[in-house]
Amino acid sequence: MTDGGAGSARERLAARQAELLTALVAGGPPPEGFDPVRLRVQRDSLIAKRRGLVARAAPLLVHALDGEFVPLFAGYADGRPKPAGGSAADARAFTAWLEAAGRLPERAPAPAEEARPRWWKRRLRRGRVG
């Protein structure tokens, strides 16, 4: 493969993939040729995937939101792409969105209070026991 050929192939692939992702996670128009029903199913599925990872990154926040987590997260994530920095950053952005919308519960934890990964705690615990 020549660099020039691969370069233009990469550019065309980049354009197609960016157009699809813009439609799915950034509120862009549906790209031509896709089944509009499946585009909605895919968009909702990506939000559900994000929601699950945010729930794992910020379990205390989810608990404080009680049963409102799912609809509130849908309101936050619809048309708003996942920020750089992974699910912890997504959880922080969701918290900021809740605060701006006046929906952050009073008993919501500060992000730093969220649990650290369990294996890490276990490692420390075993270290102390020796």
Binding site: A14, Q17, L21, V25, S45
Partner: peptide, 12 residues
């Protein structure tokens, strides 16, 4: 899983 700055968050 990403295109430019956009992160799909899952395998596309």
């Amino acid at each position: 899983v990403r295109a430019g700055d956009l992160d799909a968050g899952h395998l596309m």
